[in-house]
Design a protein around this nucleic acid. Structure first.
Lengths: 151, 151
DNA sequence: ATGGTCTCCGATAGAAATAGTCGGCGACTG
DNA sequence: CAGTCGCCGACTATTTCTATCGGAGACCAT
């Protein structure tokens, strides 16, 4: 229903939080969990996934935690979403590679929806974590935000 | 996970189908269900919802069925989606009016996500069923497709 | 007027995704 | 070498989505 999962929300919050704290500050799971009232063990899994995907870097041991792997300006919102949700698609047939969709043979909305999907992707891909924060205060989304994308 | 439900897919297919058949042709549930291999009883419910929302008009009795209530150019993709899924939001707090989100007090992504959501809405709202069909053959989504939306 | 066809509606069962939990392992710092 | 913290897999609970069932009401043709 076009809704992001809670895990994804948590991921975005965490990344945003780290970006606020600065590049040198090691942040641990508990700290974020308490800040936002997120169940610690669930957030831990989310951060682990972000780590695997190379978006953040982990540091073990006491005083350990996480750091952003790159500058907030270089982390796209889409990359965070995809790190958690895997390959995302607006419909079953774009979401699942080997989907056995009964409607496929005569489907009249497959291609149009792909175009819509690509547009949404373009928006999410073009927006960085750093930009997203600014959007918080901005009231208007710039017009130049959406692109045509080849099918 | 940013995916439309199957019901919504069915709704879009059905509306598209009706638009193809022309304004005067009464289409019944069974016909659409067979064309696209959709479970008949489920499609029936979907069409009923579209009827309630005034997107299509029902005609009872034998030789009954459905007609588009307006021209395909006047039916937005968003209106079809919302007819089936109700109020849609990219996050829980925008999806559910009375959501008790534990992250609310300090949430750092609420407003930015709303802007993103509004952008997506703008796209879906500005696209009609008639246009959607053309997007099926087009390879490029026009640049002018996204707007700024007030928060 | 009546039987067949079709929409309409609520309830419910089954399947799948999501949210959250638990327990043990390994790495690091002081 | 002990405590802290990340790492990982399995597990349960909850919610949402998908699909089905049974019956009521509208309508047309004969």
């Amino acid at each position: 229903m076009l809704k992001l999962s809670k895990k994804t929300d948590y991921a975005l919050m965490a990344v945003q939080y780290m970006s606020e704290k600065g590049a040198d500050r090691v942040v641990n799971t508990k700290e974020i969990a308490e800040e936002y009232n997120i169940p610690g063990e669930l957030l831990a899994k989310v951060l682990q996934k972000l780590g695997k995907k190379g978006l953040i870097v982990s540091q073990n041991g006491p005083k350990g935690g996480y750091l952003l792997a790159k500058s907030p300006a270089d982390i796209s919102v889409l990359s965070v979403i995809q790190a958690i949700e895997g390959h995302v698609g607006i419909t079953e047939c774009y979401h699942n590679e080997d989907s056995t969709c009964m409607q496929m043979p005569r489907c009249n909305i497959r291609t149009p929806l792909r175009n819509i999907q690509n547009s949404i992707y373009g928006l999410l891909d073009s927006m960085s974590i750093a930009e997203m924060k600014e959007f918080g205060s901005a009231t208007i989304v710039p017009q130049s935000r959406l692109y045509g994308h080849r099918t």
